[in-house]
Every structure is written in structure tokens, then in C-alpha cells.
Design a protein around this nucleic acid. Structure first.
Lengths: 1122, 167
DNA sequence: GATGTGTAGCTCAGTAAA
DNA sequence: TTTACTGAGCTACACATC
């Protein structure tokens, strides 16, 4: 065809061929010239299109010019398509092509509207161009070259929004082709496909889609499920937020990828706040357009993000929210009150200040990120007289923030004086009380409709909330003024003494009271008095509103009131049901009060004799109560008392423990907390007094495996973690059980447990060399036990891979991590305490495990070999250690029972690496020689015990129960069994520093290492170690939620029904507790006998003995107040 | 602990945890990644000490010089040997053998497998963040307002770490 | 066992943050 | 300006498949 064109026509076509490349050449350099070049190219296009040929004897027209234009363009495009991702020149060209598509179609549309009236379906140069280009590109969608696919899809994505009108069939094939590419192997291709689709989906009518999914369906599915973050992000950025898509978009605030989360806040939510030409109308992500749940979701996830950049983006968004909600709503934008307070308050109204901390977090975030807002907040004169929940909340958080950043100047200028505020509180409290009573009367009279009643109750709740906020604010007031101080003290004290005070207000009141008390003794005394007042109200005239007469708080009688016949002096049996109910309500309130008080003090029980009365009259009866609520609170109270009363604690731990098993979960949680706290506080003292806490901690540790409730599990793990972390449990089994729980398939959904341990395990490991040693010690047995669990995995259960588990241990035992942590913590002097050789020990342990013939799980062995190369072996090691390792390596390469090439390779690599690195030290290595060395005697014996490779396979087949066959190899000595799988500890001494020849055992079981399974030990007790026995033990295992070692260490004690008794026998002190545990009921009665005749002389009055100063100090030192 | 500690909590921690809790700050800072449980655990290796780092600085400026010298050659005349269609055919050639261009598990048999795998598809969402921190390790359950001073732990890095402070 | 594919580890360059 | 982190590309190896 080109050859056939006439001379006259030739020149415009040649022009096209020469001019278009020049435009492209410019376009690739910068996007700035694109607009200019659109015009230039368009001119060429139009000029060229005028060149046509008549064909078929004039019956048809051939659009030679257009065709040439398209061909030239396609050819140029082909030059770009193979250019790899990231080539900006190529990107610009494709952008240019997309832009030109837009340009040419817009021009066509303009022309069309200019000459209106013509029929619609007429082809134009533009539509033909678009169709041709699309068809051309569609052919490249399935190219085998991923780069070509990427570029083709990129071009299409640039074009999609500007296609003008295209044929139905082209649209259909384009849509199908794009949908197809959503499952492209290459993420970059998928990115372009979804960009294209997201531009397409706006125009798609779901009704028109006959079958299959709509584009939107696919996009939303991909948004959640695509493996590549890039793809998800691309959808996120190109999806129009609306009622349908928004929930899916908001779900991405918890995407695993931080950049996606950032995009949600920094792009999607931010850029769609407003819409319309001048951004004047409310956009789809305007806070008022969202539901309250969505707003809270956005704030909670954003401000709670681990990534600082996400938090910053969320914070910035919140600042914008405050700006745009400052204007009331659509109409009155030019309204008077557009102050910063208005914005913040409007925002608070959009949240729920009453529940959750979201509103407070949002406010604090705005204060920090938008200092302009914070600094311009002022509380006018009227502010304090007309408090709403939002304004009170704002004031409280504002004051708290000022306090936090030590902005005393601002604090002083905003806060009202104490006295004024006290009167304010008093007034609103009295009003509230009156209104509550009125309301109760009204209800009795039945004069309210349902609506009226609800409305009134909401209002009362609001006012109560305001009061609570002001009380919280009052904690931060300046109490230098004695008058104000007294006034406030008296006020709060009186409030607490009123039966009507809502329980919600109790903590706030107590905080104020604590602030105003001169010391803890005073606080305790006052609260105890209040408790007495509440339970014995006759003396007070409770109908009176709080009197503002000046009462000196120091004048409050400190003595306990004499007992009189009142509600609580009447024997419970004689109470009417109404009286009993009332008594219960009051007792619960008193317990709450006591709990609140005890949470806030730390002086010892003995220093505060007044507490004893409360314990006897209130707490102990509560603990004995049948009412769950009461019991629960009673136990918490008793537990809190224990924390400051050592003797009480000693007597109570057994009680708490005995109650755990039989209690419902709710109470169980409190009991467990109590035990852990008691141990945390008194462990040293207990130990000093010769009390063996082993049985207690042991049963707590074992509970991890038997408790079914997630909350209980998590709590147990947390508690045990704390005890292990702080050195109060040193038994390796605790650590091991924690790791088992951590990885168990049964805890996958228990985030609390898993996240606790995710923090604890490395923190523990990196906080002491001895801790890493423990990790090293338990590694192999834990590893194999986890593998056992994995083998028994159900279909629907998941678990991390064995290699992953191994890597975790390698990470935890990494001495570099430890020294880094030690340095960061300022323990530089101690960094020589870091054991650099710990992973050399690991390597030795692993080698010994590999050599044991009964370790035959291919997968496990493979993983262990792979782990070798990950271990850190320092450059300088002592001769013995490295020679030991080499000896093991050497033996292993001789006997290598490995079949697969991968492991072999990995092993050889490690072996040669070691051999080369320590060539000097291993120079004269010869197996026979080293076996003779005293230092390596254990190893030598270990190796000698091993059955030679050739025979070991027979052993594997032969069941163990038949007894170990012994084979006399040429150079091996017959010896006792070498049973057992992965044993944890090397028999070697530490780096050979203390050469000692131990008794021949496969593994040392010194005190630090109670790890060893009985069946694993080389202890000469053959009958015990037969296979059936072991199997029986496994079968005996009770149904456990987490499979914790059944063939665990110290079998003889662990799997017997009464391990505790056995252990306790060693400790006379503890025996009493054992008895208690055996007969819990009896014990409760013994201990908590509340027979009133004995009140004056409680069975454990000994706790009232003033403790030695030393002991008090100890408790005081241990706890530090906030 | 379902919420990130806010400034009030942190201030409380700062005023009083200075004695011992400060040492644990390191963990709080460094365990920010890897909080989400074992399935999200990733090995993060510490970078070995870069001994010689003085001469590496000047290199940055040098590489800046060569910046985007590349240009696509649109201007050379097209290869007369190769027709547009041929090039296109070459570039657009679909795969003939081996693995396709789609993700495994998709394509022709997708309809069946989709329903099965749909339930198992990863949503790529983080678990609820419990915001566990050193704070939880040194506070009591019942008295969260107080911190435990672990005097015994000052000897933490000693060789015999299981020792207990004896005064 | 040969083959091709998928993936992990490594290095380098570019970018974002300090 | 320097530094740290991320992402792309490369290489080698493991794994699956025939």
C-alpha cells in the first residue's frame, strides 16, 4: 500500500512518519511539553486524516492517512513496551498516549456538539483511533513477556478514563481482558489491571451484568485478598469512596502493610472530605457523612497504629476534621462562632465522649499535632456555668494535657479557682441528687411516658458524666489555698458518704481524695469511716444535701463508731428480703470503695489498723457469700489486702489457689490475678521464710495447658511471664510451657496470649545471658515437642513451620541481640557478661541431637541442619569448644544418616566453614586423640555410645521396648543405653573452662536443667523406660486445650495425680497449705470464720502485729506509686 | 490493653519508671515490629558493625552526576526488514509451554476452586493490637497504678541470672 | 535424574526521614 | 547532608514435575 500511493499523496504521509517520532522524542523527556505536543500531534492527525483513497471503484473510501498515523504510533509504542518498570521515559510516553486519547476524544466531542443534530453513531477520526489502538493493545494482554504485559496494561490504564464512546464489543472484550489480568502472575501487571478496572467500574451498571461478578465485586475482593500490597494500594487509591466501598476501604485501616494504612488516612480519607468545584459540599469521607462507628474505627485504628507515620497521618486527618466540622453544617458556613473550641466541640459531639477512650485520644492527638488549635482554646466566663458533657470533657482533657506538658501558665489562666469549682460541683451534685429523687418519685407515680422517662434518664446520665469529668479535672487543680482544699475535701468526702452516689463516680472521688489527703493513712482512715457511715447510717442525716458549712476535715472523728443495732447488726437471717437486698447493695458499694482505695495505697496493712475492721466485717463475709458478684469483689478486696499484708498473704495464697478450679471464669480471673500479684510482691519474703512456692507456681504453669477459657489462658501466660521475667520462677518447664502455648494451634485466636508472649519471649531472652542460656537449654526438647504437635495437627489447624520455630530460637539466643540490648540499657559494663558462645553451644547440642539414632524425623533433622548455618559463632573461641564441635561434625560426616541432598549440602557447608575458620585451632585434629582428652571425655563417651551407622537402621525399625540392641563396633565401647531423642544440654562443660568428667549421661541434668524426660535420661531404670509405659502416659493425658508436654520432664512427679503432695513433703512450712488445698471448704471456714463473737479476736489476728520496719520498707520499696 | 498508651499513661511511666523501667524502654522501642504473634514473626538481623564508613560518604555525590542520560530512540528510521506486524507478533507472543501467566489456582478451573479457597484466603489484616509493653511486665494486675521496682533484676546480666537480691 | 519454576538471600540504588 | 529503609534485580538453590 505505501508503495501504491500516488506521488501527490506521498508527501503528507512521509511527513507523518517523520513528525510523529519527533513529538514522541520530546514527550519522553518531560511531561511539561505534553499539552503542547497534544496540539501538534492532533494537527498532524487531522491533516493526515484528510488523505484518503477511493477503493473498489469508488464504492468505498480507504482512510490511508488515519491508517498511517495509527501505524506510526503503534510502531513507536512498540519501542516502549519492552522497557522495564521504572523507566520514566517510557512512563511519560504512555502517559502521553493516554493524554492524547483524552485530547482527541474531547476535540471530537466538541465538534460533535458544535454541529449538533447529526446522528450519534457516526464514526469519527477519534473513535476510530481509539478503537484501533485498543484493539492493538488487547493483543498484547497475554504476551509471555511480563514487561510487555505491564506496559500494555499501563497504556490501557492511562487511556480508560478517556475513551469517549466506544463500541459495545470492544468494551466487552476490554472488560473481560482486564478482569482476566487481575489474576496475572505479576503483581505489577495486576496493579495496572485494577487501575484500569477501577476507572471502568464507575460506568458499569450492575443491572447490565448478566452473569458473573461485577467489576466492583472483583475489585473489592482483590482489595482484601490480593497478596501484593501494591495491588491493594492501587485499588484503594482509585476506588471512589461511597456507601458501598467505604466499609471495605475502612477495613484497610488494619491492612498488614503500613503504606496501605498510610494511604487510607493520608490520601483516601483526606482527599474526599469535601467535593464539588470549590470543595464546598460534604464529601463521602466527611466525618458527618460517616457513622459514629466508622468515625471511631478510623480514630482508634489510626491513633493506635504501631507505625508512627500512620499515626501522624491519622492525627493530621483529625486536625482537618476539627477544621471542617467547625462550621455547623451546610447552610451557615459564614456563621459567627467558628472558634477553635467550636470545631473541637462539634467533633466531640460526633464521637461518644461517654464510652471508650477514643474521644480522649482524638483530642489529645489534635492538641499535639495542631498546636494552633490547642493554643487558641479558651474557656470563657460562661463556660463553667453551662457545662455539657462535651465541654466538661474538653476541659478535663485540656487540663490533663496542660499538666502532661507542664504548661503551668496556660493551666493557671484557664482553671477556675478551687473554691469556685467546689461550689460548682456541690451545686450540680445536689441538683442531680434532687432530680434523681424527683425522677424516682415520678416513676412511682407513673406519670411519665416511656419516651419522657428515657429522655430524663439520658439527661441525668449526662449530668452525672459532667460531674465525673469535673472531678477528674479537680485532681489537677492547685490546692495551695487551704480554704479551697478543705472545701473540696469535705465535699468529696460527703459525696462518697451518700448512698446514691453512682459507682462510676467513686474512682474519680477517690482520686481527688487521695490528692487531698496528707498521707495514705489519712486516706485509708477516711475511706474506712465512709464505709462505716454507709453501712451504719443512722447517725447521719442522709436526706440532707451536702452542707457547705465549713467543716474541718481534720476534725472528722477518727475512731470507729460504736456498734449499734442497724441493718448490719441484725443477723442476716433475720433480715427481710428488702433489707437483705439493701444490705447487699450497700456492701457492694462499700467493696467498690475499698477496692478503689486499696488500689491507690501502698502502706502496709499493719500500719493501718482501721483496715482490720473492714476486713472482718465486710471483706471476709463477702468472700463467703453465695452471691458471685459479692464473692468476686470480696476476693479482689482480700487480694488487695494481701498485697500490703504479708502475713495475710501467706495464709491466703492457698485459699486462692484452692478456689481457682471450682470458680466460674469471671471469678477465676480475679483469683488468678490475686495469686500472681501476691507472688510478685511477696516472693522474696516467702522464700526467705522458707516457704516453697514451687508447687504454687507449678500448678499455675500447668493450668496454662488445662484451662479452656481464652481470657484465663492469656492471664495465666501473662502472670507466668511476669514471674519468669522477674526471676521468681526459674524452672525451665515454665518457659517451655509458655512457648508451647505460644505456638499451639489452639491459641491462634488468642491474641492477648500471643502478643503477650511475642513481647515477653525476646524481652526475656535479651535481658540476661542466663536467660539465653535457658532458651538454649530448652531448645531441642521444645522443638521436638512442637514437631509432635505439628504432626498431630488437624486439617483446619495452623501452626508456624518448624524452620520458623527454629529461627525463633536462633533469634532469641542471638548474643548480638543481647549485647545490643545490654548496651542500650546502659549495661555496658556488663556486656562482658554476654555469653558470645551460646550459639556454639547450640550448635553442639544440635549436633548431638543429630547423632542420636532415635532422632529420625527427616523433616526435623533437616531443619536442625539448616539452622546450623544461622548460628553465630564468634571468631575467637576456645580450643575445647571448637574441637568438641569439630569432633561431632566429623563423626556426623562419617555416620551421616541423612538421605537428602539439601541437608547434606547444608551440613557440609557448615562443616567446611567451621574447619576453615578455625583451621589453626583444629590443625592437629584427629579423632582418636581428642577422644582421649579429659575435656572431651563426655563427648567421646557419647560418641562411643552411638550405634554405628550401619546398624542404626536396624535399631530404627526395631521397637524400643525390646531393649536396646548393642553392637560392638570396632572402635566403640559397649555401654549402657543411649536412649532418648533430642536432649537439651551438652555434656560438655562451658567452653571447657571447668574441665570436669561427669558421670556418663547423655545429658546433664543439673539444677538448671530439669528438662530431661525421664525416658531420655540415661539413668539406669530400664523398666520405666519401655515404650508401652511412655505410650500409656501419653494416653493418660487429660484432654488439654493446649498440648503441653506429656512426656515431660520429671515424669515421676509431673504426671502423677498428686505431684503437689509429693513436693510439699519437702517443705514442712508448706504442708499446712497442702492440707488446706485438700479441704478447701474447711480451710475457708477456718480462715474466714466471721462468727461475730470472734470479731474482736480473729483467728489470724497475728497479722495485726506491727511488722518490723524492715518488712514495711520492703513492701514500700517494692511498689512505686505512679 | 487494647489501646495505645496515651500521654497520661506515658507520663505516669516516665515520672516513676526511671529507676528500673527505663531499662525496658529499649524493648518497647525495638519490638514495635513483630508484635503480632508468631505467624507474623520475621527475623530481623542486627547489622554487623560497619568498620570502614568514612570513605563511603563521597560516593553519593558521584552517582548523582549520571542521571537519566537514557533516551528512547524514536528518531532512527524503522528497520525496513521488520514489519510492524512482525514486531508486534514477537512481542505479543503468548506463552507456549510451561507455567502460564496467571497465578496458580486461577484460570479455567477457577470457578470450582474459588469457592473452596475463598474461605481460606488471607484477608491481609492485622490482629487486634493489644499494645503489650514492658509496662505489663512490671505492673500488678490488681494495682495497675503502681510499678514494681525489681531490685533483684539489677543483677540481671550477671552470669548467674537466677540470683535474687538479698537485701 | 533432568528440567523448569519458585523462592530465599544478597546487593545495589533510590527515596524518605533526620 | 547523611543515614536508614525499602524495593528491584540478580543468583543460587530447593522443590516439583515429568
Amino acid at each position: 500500500m505505501p508503495g501504491r500511493v500516488s506521488q501527490a499523496a506521498d508527501s503528507p504521509l512521509t511527513l507523518l512518519r517523520a513528525a510523529i517520532p519527533k513529538i514522541f522524542d520530546q514527550a519522553q523527556v518531560s511531561a511539561n511539553n505534553h499539552q503542547k505536543n497534544f496540539v501538534a500531534l492532533y494537527k498532524l492527525h487531522i491533516e493526515g486524516s484528510k488523505h484518503t483513497e477511493l477503493v473498489r471503484n469508488g464504492q468505498g473510501v480507504r482512510l490511508v492517512g488515519e491508517k498511517t498515523f495509527e501505524e506510526v504510533l503503534n510502531r513507536l509504542l512498540l519501542l516502549v513496551l519492552p522497557l522495564k518498570k521504572g523507566t520514566s521515559q517510557a512512563d511519560r510516553i504512555l502517559k502521553f498516549v493516554g493524554g492524547y486519547t483524552k485530547f482527541v476524544n474531547e476535540k471530537a466531542a466538541e465538534e460533535k456538539s458544535a454541529q449538533e443534530g447529526d446522528d450519534e453513531d457516526e464514526d469519527t477520526t477519534a473513535s476510530r483511533f481509539t478503537a484501533h489502538l485498543l484493539k492493538f493493545l488487547l493483543k498484547g494482554f497475554e504476551s509471555k513477556d511480563k514487561i510487555v504485559r505491564y506496559r500494555v496494561l499501563q497504556t490501557v490504564a492511562e487511556m480508560v478514563s478517556h475513551l469517549g464512546e466506544i463500541d459495545e464489543d470492544i468494551y466487552t472484550s476490554l472488560r473481560a481482558a482486564l478482569m482476566d489480568r487481575v489474576s496475572d502472575k505479576e503483581a505489577s501487571v495486576r496493579v495496572q489491571a485494577v487501575i484500569g478496572l477501577s476507572k471502568l467500574c464507575g460506568s458499569e451498571d450492575p443491572a447490565e451484568v448478566e452473569e458473573g461478578e461485577t467489576v466492583l465485586d472483583v475489585l473489592l475482593d482483590t482489595l482484601a485478598h490480593d497478596t501484593a500490597p501494591d495491588v491493594r494500594r492501587a485499588i484503594l487509591m482509585n476506588l471512589t469512596p461511597n456507601a458501598t466501598t467505604l466499609p471495605h476501604i475502612l477495613a484497610r485501616t488494619r491492612d498488614t502493610d503500613p503504606t496501605i494504612r498510610k494511604v487510607v488516612y493520608g490520601t483516601v480519607l483526606k482527599d474526599n472530605l469535601m467535593q464539588g468545584e470549590e470543595e464546598k459540599t460534604m464529601g463521602p469521607t466527611h466525618p458527618r457523612a460517616l457513622t459514629i462507628l466508622q468515625r471511631e474505627q478510623i480514630i482508634r485504628n489510626g491513633l493506635g497504629d504501631r507505625e508512627p507515620s500512620v499515626r501522624a497521618a491519622a492525627s493530621a486527618l483529625l486536625g482537618l476534621w476539627a477544621d471542617i466540622v467547625a462550621m455547623k453544617s451546610e447552610e451557615d458556613q459564614d456563621q459567627e462562632d467558628v472558634s477553635v473550641e467550636r470545631g473541637v466541640l462539634n467533633l466531640l459531639e460526633l464521637l461518644d465522649v461517654g464510652v471508650s477512650t477514643v474521644a480522649a485520644d482524638a483530642l489529645l492527638s489534635i492538641f499535639t499535632s495542631r498546636v494552633d488549635i490547642f493554643e487558641n482554646i479558651e474557656f470563657g466566663d460562661r463556660f463553667w456555668t453551662s457545662l455539657t458533657p462535651e465541654t466538661a470533657f474538653l476541659a478535663r482533657v485540656f487540663v490533663g494535657h496542660c499538666k502532661a506538658i507542664n504548661d503551668d501558665v496556660r493551666l493557671e489562666s484557664t482553671l477556675p479557682v478551687v473554691t469556685a469549682l467546689a461550689f460548682r460541683i456541690q451545686e450540680s451534685y445536689n441538683d442531680l441528687l434532687d432530680d434523681i429523687r424527683d425522677h424516682d418519685d415520678q416513676i412511682l407515680l407513673g406519670g411519665l411516658t416511656e419516651d419522657e422517662r428515657n429522655q430524663k434518664e439520658d439527661e441525668l446520665l449526662d449530668r452525672e458524666f459532667v460531674l465525673a469529668e469535673i472531678l477528674r479535672l479537680a485532681v489537677n487543680l492547685d490546692y495551695a489555698d487551704e480554704i479551697g482544699r478543705r472545701k473540696m475535701f469535705q465535699l468529696v468526702r460527703d459525696m462518697l458518704s451518700k448512698g446514691e452516689l453512682s459507682e462510676k463516680l467513686i474512682p474519680c472521688c477517690l482520686d481527688v481524695l487521695r490528692k487531698l489527703s496528707s498521707n495514705e493513712r489519712d486516706l485509708i482512715r477516711v475511706v474506712v469511716e465512709i464505709v462505716h457511715d454507709l453501712r451504719d447510717p443512722d447517725e447521719e442525716d442522709e436526706e440532707d444535701p451536702i452542707d457547705d458549712a465549713e467543716t474541718s476535715y481534720s476534725a472528722t472523728p477518727a475512731t470507729v463508731k460504736p456498734q449499734r443495732m442497724g441493718l448490719f447488726t441484725k443477723p442476716p437471717a433475720e433480715r427481710t428480703p428488702e433489707e437483705a437486698a439493701r444490705a447487699k447493695t450497700i456492701d457492694l458499694k462499700c467493696l467498690t470503695l475499698c477496692i478503689g482505695m486499696l488500689e491507690r495505697v501502698n502502706s502496709t496493712f499493719e500500719e493501718n489498723s482501721t483496715l482490720d475492721g473492714v476486713l472482718q466485717d465486710l471483706v471476709i463475709p463477702a468472700v463467703q457469700s453465695k452471691d458471685l458478684d459479692m464473692r468476686s469483689k470480696g476476693f479482689v478486696c482480700l487480694g488487695l489486702c494481701c498485697l500490703i499484708a504479708r502475713r495475710l498473704a501467706i495464709g491466703s495464697v492457698g485459699l486462692f489457689m484452692s478456689q481457682i478450679k471450682s470458680s466460674p471464669d469471671e471469678l477465676k480471673l480475679e483469683l488468678i490475678k490475686t495469686v500472681f500479684d501476691t507472688l510478685m510482691v511477696h516472693e522474696q519474703a516467702f522464700t526467705k521464710q522458707g516457704i516453697d512456692l514451687g508447687p504454687v507456681t507449678e500448678s499455675l504453669v500447668n493450668l496454662i495447658g488445662t484451662e479452656a477459657d481464652e481470657k484465663v489462658q492469656a492471664l495465666l501466660c501473662m502472670g507466668v511471664s511476669k514471674l519468669v521475667f522477674n526471676g521468681m520462677i526459674t524452672d525451665n518447664r515454665a518457659l517451655k510451657n509458655l512457648i508451647m502455648a505460644y505456638l499451639s494451634p489452639n491459641t491462634v485466636s488468642n491474641q492477648e496470649l500471643r502478643q503477650c508472649l511475642t513481647y515477653f519471649l525476646p524481652a526475656f531472652s535479651y535481658s540476661a545471658s542466663s536467660h539465653q542460656k535457658k532458651m538454649c537449654e530448652i531448645f531441642l526438647s521444645t522443638f521436638s515437642q512442637i514437631s509432635d504437635v505439628r504432626r498431630k495437627l488437624e486439617d483446619d489447624q495452623e501452626m508456624v513451620s518448624g524452620l520458623q520455630v527454629g529461627m525463633m530460637f536462633v533469634d532469641w539466643t542471638d548474643p548480638l541481640k543481647l549485647s545490643k540490648a545490654a548496651d542500650a540499657q546502659g549495661h555496658i559494663s556488663d556486656s562482658n557478661g554476654v555469653n558470645d558462645f551460646i550459639q556454639l553451644e547450640m550448635a553442639t547440642n544440635i549436633m548431638m541431637a543429630l547423632l542420636k539414632p532415635e532422632n529420625k524425623d527427616e523433616d526435623d533433622m533437616k531443619i536442625l541442619v539448616q539452622l546450623l548455618s544461622k548460628l553465630y559463632i564468634p571468631d575467637k573461641v576456645d580450643d575445647d569448644s571448637i574441637r568438641t564441635l569439630k569432633l561431632l561434625l566429623h563423626n556426623y560426616s562419617m555416620r551421616r544418616p541423612l538421605s537428602d541432598a539439601t541437608s547434606n549440602r547444608a551440613f557440609t557447608k557448615f562443616d567446611t566453614a567451621i574447619s576453615e575458620r578455625f583451621a589453626k585451632q583444629l590443625e592437629d585434629f584427629s579423632e582418636e586423640e581428642y577422644k582421649q582428652l579429659v575435656e572431651l571425655k563426655d563427648i567421646a563417651e557419647f560418641l562411643d555410645d552411638l550405634i554405628p551407622l550401619d546398624d542404626s537402621e536396624i535399631i530404627d525399625i526395631e521397637p524400643k521396648k525390646k531393649g536396646r540392641k548393642r553392637y560392638v563396633a570396632s572402635d566403640s565401647i559397649i555401654s549402657t543405653t543411649t536412649e532418648g531423642d533430642c536432649s537439651d544440654s551438652p555434656p560438655s562443660s562451658k567452653q571447657g573452662k571447668k574441665p570436669k568428667s561427669k558421670k556418663r549421661r547423655l545429658s546433664t541434668s543439673d539444677d538448671e536443667d530439669p528438662e530431661e524426660d525421664d525416658t531420655q535420661k540415661g539413668s539406669p531404670a530400664p523398666p520405666k523406660r519401655t515404650l508401652p509405659k511412655r505410650a500409656a502416659v501419653i494416653n493418660k493425658k487429660p484432654p488439654q486445650v493446649i498440648v503441653i508436654s506429656s512426656d515431660d520432664d520429671d515424669d515421676d512427679e509431673e504426671n502423677t495425680p498428686g505431684p503437689r503432695q509429693k513436693r510439699l513433703a519437702l517443705s514442712p512450712r508448706y504442708q499446712t497449705n497442702v492440707k488446706k488445698e485438700e479441704k478447701p471448704d474447711q480451710e475457708i471456714n477456718d480462715m474466714l470464720d466471721d462468727d461475730s463473737s470472734e470479731l474482736s479476736e480473729p483467728p489470724h489476728d497475728s497479722i495485726m502485729d506491727p511488722d518490723s520496719d524492715e518488712e514495711q520498707d520492703e513492701v514500700n520499696d517494692l511498689l512505686t506509686e505512679d | 490493653p487494647r489501646r495505645i498508651p496515651n500521654e497520661r499513661d506515658l507520663v505516669m511511666a516516665m515520672t516513676d519508671a526511671d529507676a528500673e523501667g527505663g531499662a525496658l524502654d529499649y524493648f518497647d522501642q525495638n519490638f514495635l515490629k513483630n508484635w503480632a504473634g508468631p505467624e507474623h514473626w520475621k527475623l530481623r538481623k542486627v547489622i554487623r558493625r560497619p568498620e570502614a564508613d568514612t570513605n563511603a560518604a563521597t560516593k553519593a555525590t558521584k552517582t548523582r552526576g549520571k542521571k537519566e542520560g537514557f533516551k528512547i530512540d524514536f528518531l532512527s528510521p524503522p528497520d525496513p526488514e521488520k514489519d510492524l506486524k512482525e514486531i508486534a507478533k514477537e512481542l505479543f507472543a503468548p506463552v507456549t509451554k510451561g507455567a502460564g501467566i496467571n497465578l496458580p489456582g486461577t484460570g479455567a478451573t477457577a470457578k470450582k476452586s474459588k469457592k473452596k479457597t475463598k474461605e481460606k484466603k488471607d484477608e491481609h489484616l492485622l490482629p487486634d493490637d493489644m499494645h503489650f509493653s514492658s509496662r505489663q511486665l512490671v505492673t500488678l494486675f490488681l494495682k495497675p497504678k503502681f510499678f514494681l521496682k525489681m531490685r533483684g533484676r539489677k543483677a540481671r546480666l550477671d552470669e548467674n541470672g537466677d540470683d535474687v537480691d538479698e537485701n
